[in-house]
Amino acid sequence: MIEVVDSLEAVMTKYSLVTAFAVIGLTVWISYFLSARLTFGRLHGSAIAILIGLVMAYIGGVVTDGTKGIADIEVLAGIGLMGGAMFRDIAIVATAFGVRLEEFLETGLSGVLSLFSGVLVSFAVGGMVAFAFGYRDAVSITTIGGGAATYIVGPVTGTALSASDEVMALSVAAGLVKSILVMTMTPVVAPWIGLDNPRSALIFGGLMGTTSGVAAGLAATDPKLVPYGAMTATFYTGLGCLVGPSIVFLVVRALV
């Protein structure tokens, strides 16, 4: 019996990406089944699938003490590859197939506006929270503010300003909280914020900025909106890393 389990494990580990396709396929199937039978389509199947994914990630984190969610369990390591930047980016780019260029360009100005306001507002909100919790030095305030932008902007800003490890870890956690909330809450708030057309999706992507959050949040709301949100979101982290250690830091230092 043990030999059977061992050989099963050996095959699943060796063909980890294939295992991932099977596991994720099963997850999606269960999610769409639950969506149709339990919620009568009110909660979209993809939203349930993403929620199950996050729960799996939490379990993986608790079981292994790692940082890659369920992918830290050896036989499921392929999920990390399947959900990693390489596959994610090629799939996001593919969603742009069939989109008309005019639809992107029409929103040009508000897209740029949403990017700048999204980055600056996140820095401001994160910085204020840091201040409220007793952080008084400009480096920590800016780094935690960067985390409220995305979990990449935080540590990049922190490294540039030589923030402490503890503050860097906080900024990554803040970015993760944001990304997970955007994934799960977007379909819920979409009707209230008018997120039902390419224009508002572009603005949404620029304001939120977390590529993974926007990618999953829009997929669960309306997959047709994905390319628009993803388009602006992809400029967000770069912009955040640009203004964080420079303009934002100088402003924060002048204020505290």
Binding site: I50, L54, A57, A71, I79, R88, A94, S212, V226
Partner: peptide, 30 residues
């Protein structure tokens, strides 16, 4: 695309987000 996003969700550091403490959660939520 959607299955890939599900795999992405499943490989996020969710535990890290939850155990990040009140500062991280407040900053992210707000």
């Amino acid at each position: 695309y959607i299955p890939i996003v599900v795999a992405m969700a499943a490989s996020q550091n969710v535990r890290g987000a939850i155990t990040g403490g009140p500062v991280a959660i407040a900053a992210g939520v707000l």
